[in-house]
């Protein structure tokens, strides 16, 4: 069977890159004494898949990984063992056992919620955000492996709301289309014609789609 696990990457660890985080998680799993499964081959490693890598510099409130294990066990038992082996800034929040044939979280990923804590929000910014969203097209240029490419951000934005100094963004995150929160902020403040304030961006939830509605990835 395999476990769908939700964990947090606390702000202190935001500078840890994806590969380093993977290694830290593998070592935690090794400490846990859980019945793990290993890859075949010359240098066997623990089977473990993160639903979506986090960029360096970004904390994650509810990240999702899939851990195949030998035999059967409850989510509570798994959670207890793994929690004991994790450092304080990398707590494990939930674990749900599913069948090996259950689709991988990575394959079901559709979007993500991000929160940007703006150092200082411009006045009456809620209205600006509304006007920004009311555009039919939002042309932008995004960096890809093959260079800078023009794109339209609008279809990749599921929602934008401003509360106090916090901008919540629901943005597409899947193989077909991904809108990085950083690109959206640049585009938004360009539209607002104000300099972009410093902001700590946190990914708060990964989302999948069920019956045409976005829902937390780990529940699928």
């Amino acid at each position: 069977m395999k476990m769908i696990v939700v964990f947090e990457k606390a702000p202190r660890l935001r500078h840890i890159g994806h590969l380093d985080l993977m290694r830290a998680m593998q070592r935690a799993l090794r400490r846990s004494g859980l019945p793990l499964r290993y890859s075949q081959g010359f240098n066997p490693h623990i089977l473990l898949t993160f639903a979506a890598p986090l960029s360096v510099g970004m904390p994650g409130k509810r990240e999702v990984m899939e851990v195949p294990i030998e035999g059967e066990m409850t989510g509570e038992a798994f959670l207890q063992k793994l929690s004991a082996a994790l450092p304080p800034d990398l707590p494990c929040l939930s674990a749900r056992p599913v069948d090996d044939r259950h689709p991988a979280p990575m394959a079901q990923l559709t979007a993500a919620i991000y929160q940007a804590e703006l150092e200082q929000a411009p006045e009456n910014f809620e209205a600006t955000v509304q006007a920004y969203l009311a555009q039919r097209e939002i042309p932008a240029v995004r960096k890809t492996k093959t260079g800078m490419k023009p794109c339209d951000l609008r279809p990749m934005i599921y929602g934008l709301t401003m509360k106090g100094n916090t901008l919540q963004m629901v943005l597409a995150l899947c193989e077909k289309a991904t809108c990085k929160p950083d690109l959206l902020l640049s585009s938004l403040f360009e539209f607002a014609q104000t300099p972009r304030p410093r902001a700590l961006i946190t990914r708060t939830q990964l989302l999948g789609e069920k019956d045409g509605v976005l829902c937390p990835l780990e529940t699928l």
Binding site: R12, L13, H15, R27, A28, R31, G57, P87, P88, D89
Partner: peptide
């Protein structure tokens, strides 16, 4: 500062068993 320096992970601590 941590946002602007090389390899900031060296300065954060919080490792397992620290």
């Amino acid at each position: 500062l941590l946002e602007t320096v090389q390899k900031p992970a060296r300065y954060i601590g919080g490792e397992m068993n620290a």
